[in-house]
Simulated scan of single mutants.
Amino acid sequence: MTRAYFTENEKMYTPKFPAWSMDAKLHIEEILQDKGYQVSVVARVGCDRKYHDAWQVEREDIPRLVEQLFRQRIAVEVQAEGHGKASINFCYDYSESQILAAVKGFWRNRK
């Protein structure tokens, strides 16, 4: 481990196109909000220094969401953000149809 971690400037990358359409992003947010999760679909830089679609969620919802994604065989990265938020990054660039199908099977949030 002689190399340093990437700095935020080294992670910068200009995406060529968004992976998920705006309609799909809004539909995902709508489904998850109906199930009791506060989710915003955003773009985040993954460990490969490329932008990927991501969800910005409440930190307290992370264990439940990651478990449900794990049940659907969807691998993700989790990144801490400020003010009680975290992001779930889809670094393997799953298609919007895969994510929509998975989200429909999620359990309701029991807060």
Rank of each mutant, 00 (worst) to 15 (best):
M1T: 10
T2L: 10
T2N: 13
R3P: 09
R3F: 05
R3W: 01
A4S: 08
Y5N: 12
F6R: 10
T7L: 01
T7D: 00
N9E: 14
E10M: 09
M12P: 00
M12W: 11
M12F: 12
Y13R: 12
T14H: 11
K16F: 08
K16W: 08
P18K: 15
P18D: 15
A19F: 07
A24L: 06
K25V: 07
L26P: 01
L26G: 06
L26R: 15
L26E: 12
E29N: 08
I31G: 03
L32S: 01
Q33S: 15
Q38L: 09
Q38I: 00
A43D: 14
R44Q: 13
R44D: 13
V45T: 14
G46R: 01
D48L: 11
Y51H: 11
H52C: 03
A54K: 01
A54I: 05
Q56R: 13
V57N: 02
E58V: 08
E58F: 08
R59E: 14
R59K: 12
R59I: 13
E60N: 11
D61S: 11
I62R: 02
I62V: 15
L65V: 04
L65M: 12
L65E: 06
E67T: 10
Q68D: 09
F70N: 14
F70D: 14
R71A: 12
R71C: 08
R71I: 09
Q72E: 14
R73F: 09
I74E: 01
A75S: 13
V76A: 02
E77L: 02
V78W: 00
Q79M: 12
A80T: 09
G82I: 08
G84E: 04
K85I: 07
A86T: 02
A86M: 00
A86H: 01
A86R: 01
S87T: 07
S87L: 00
I88H: 01
F90E: 03
F90T: 00
F90D: 03
C91E: 15
Y92K: 14
Y94T: 02
S97G: 02
S97F: 10
L100N: 00
A102H: 06
A102Q: 04
V103F: 02
G105L: 06
R108E: 11
N109D: 06
R110K: 13
R110N: 08
R110I: 04
K111P: 10
